[in-house]
Computed example of a mutant assay.
Amino acid sequence: MRYVIIGAGAIGGVVGGQLAESGHEVVLVARGAQLAALRETGLRLTTPEGTRPLRLPCAAGPEEVDLRPDDVLLLAVKSQDSVAALDAWSGRPVAGGGTAGEMLPVVCAQNGVENERLALRRFRRVYAMCVYLPAIFIEPGAVSAAGDPMTGVLHLGRYPTGVDATATAIAADLEKSRFAAPVVPDAMRWKYSKLLSNTLNSLGAVCGAPALSAPVGLDLAARTMAEGRAVLAAAGIEAVGEAEHMAARDGLVVQVRMESGAAGAGSSWQSLVRGTGSIEADYLNGEVVLLGALHGVPTPVNEVLQRLANEFARERRAAGSMPVEEVAAAVAAAELAHRDTA
């Protein structure tokens, strides 16, 4: 199989780079400064073993890739960019007949739980991937992954449920590339669990990672995730619990041992640092807010974090520049407003 990595940032760059290092065909798809750097100097991949340059085929979009029947499309763009990417790729012809949407599998290697639904509107064969991979992408052309001995843990399964030969084959390739890749029939349970922890991305982005360990930050983090658990319960959505996480990952624990000034920085923080102008909060905190609205559960903490993250991205404010006490004050005001309108 050949892997077409749509979105060669932190996750896409690391997964694509290590697949290529283990002998698999890979095409990296990127845009802007990242694409320019990939074309000029290649991908610079850093792991605990060191830094190495990788010269891989790269493209700006589907018009530059001659799709083959053995291609796997791995979608690794941020969720706010999924619709544009899926629309661009689904109608492209595949050698031998048919379109990508009809013929090729697409793997959603992204945060959030909406991407698979979006993909299934356009592709017949959709796979969910829950990504536990400490990776960093700040500088064009350079990605780093801090996990050891495994680079990451990637639970994979057919969407909406099930496993098949394609999922098993992809997992085998990933496991040859220093990833743990359990094939599971309920990959979305893993993704909903990851969603709960990803709701903290916005808090880390606007206040900085150290704020998450301060007393005020710890309280906000606990309340953020409590709202998430409450809306999932109200919606009847099952997520993998902590005990199941630990049992499934026993012996596959990804230890972060590579020194980095951005260690612990989440993907939303990285978006602000790169000044992209957008952030995925609508699909993380926003998912909790949506479920809360649908099922009558107040979600003031996630509402504030969603709003602040979007303001930071839109106004290109510096990552980590808001004191966590200001966020707490905004949350208190939101909670008061909820009580007044209840």
Rank of each mutant, 00 (worst) to 15 (best):
Leu272Cys: 11
Glu139Cys: 07
Glu311Gln: 15
Ala145Pro: 01
Ile170Lys: 10
Ile5Phe: 02
Glu40Thr: 15
Val331Ser: 12
Tyr283Cys: 00
Ala337Phe: 03
Glu116Trp: 03
Glu242Leu: 07
Arg223Ala: 11
Ala328His: 06
Arg55Tyr: 05
Arg55Glu: 13
Leu291Ser: 11
Ala109Asn: 04
Leu43Gly: 13
Leu305Arg: 08
Ala337Ile: 05
Ala59Phe: 02
His245Asp: 14
Pro182Met: 13
Gly17Lys: 04
Tyr3Trp: 13
Gly228Val: 01
Leu294Asp: 13
Thr46Ala: 13
Ser213Asp: 14
Ala88Tyr: 06
Ala222Tyr: 06
Arg68His: 13
Leu104Cys: 06
Val253Leu: 09
Val94Gly: 09
Leu118Met: 14
Phe123Ile: 00
Ala76Trp: 11
Ser90Val: 01
Thr41Trp: 04
Arg189Leu: 03
Val289Thr: 15
Cys58Phe: 02
Val297Trp: 07
Ile5Trp: 02
Glu315Met: 05
Ala119His: 03
Met150Pro: 03
Arg125Pro: 03
Gly61Met: 04
Ser268Phe: 06
Thr47Phe: 02
Leu67Asp: 06
Val143Glu: 04
Tyr283Trp: 12
Gly12Val: 00
Tyr127Glu: 10
Ala145Ser: 15
Pro48Phe: 05
Ala211Phe: 12
Pro69Trp: 01
Leu86Gly: 08
Val324Gln: 07
Leu308Cys: 09
Ala30Ser: 14
Lys78His: 11
Pro185Tyr: 05
Val153Arg: 10
Val216His: 07
Arg314Ala: 15
Thr341Gly: 07
Gly241Gln: 08
Gly61Phe: 05
Glu335Val: 11
Met1Trp: 13
Val143His: 05
Glu175Ala: 07
Gly23Asp: 10
Ala209His: 08
Arg68Glu: 14
Met150Phe: 13
Leu104Ala: 11
Val29Gln: 05
Val216Leu: 09
Pro323Trp: 00
Gly7Leu: 00
Gly264Pro: 08
Pro300His: 10
Cys130Lys: 00
Asp173Leu: 04
Arg68Phe: 09
Ala221Thr: 14
Val113Met: 12
Leu336Ile: 05
Gly32Leu: 04
Ala309Asp: 12
Gly261Trp: 10
Ala309Ile: 01
Leu174Val: 13
Ser22Asn: 09
Lys194Phe: 10
Leu305Tyr: 02
Asp219Gln: 11
Gly9Val: 04
Ala226Phe: 03
Val216Gln: 12
Thr151Ala: 12
Tyr192Gln: 11
Leu28Tyr: 07
Ala88Leu: 00
Gly9Thr: 15
Ala95Arg: 12
Ala313Ile: 02
Tyr127Asp: 07
Val240Asp: 11
Ala10Val: 04
Lys78Phe: 01
His155Gly: 05
Leu232Gly: 11
Glu287His: 09
Met150Cys: 09
Val216Glu: 15
Val72Ser: 07
Leu74Asn: 06
Ala221Val: 01
Ser79Asn: 10
Val83Met: 07
Leu56Asp: 12
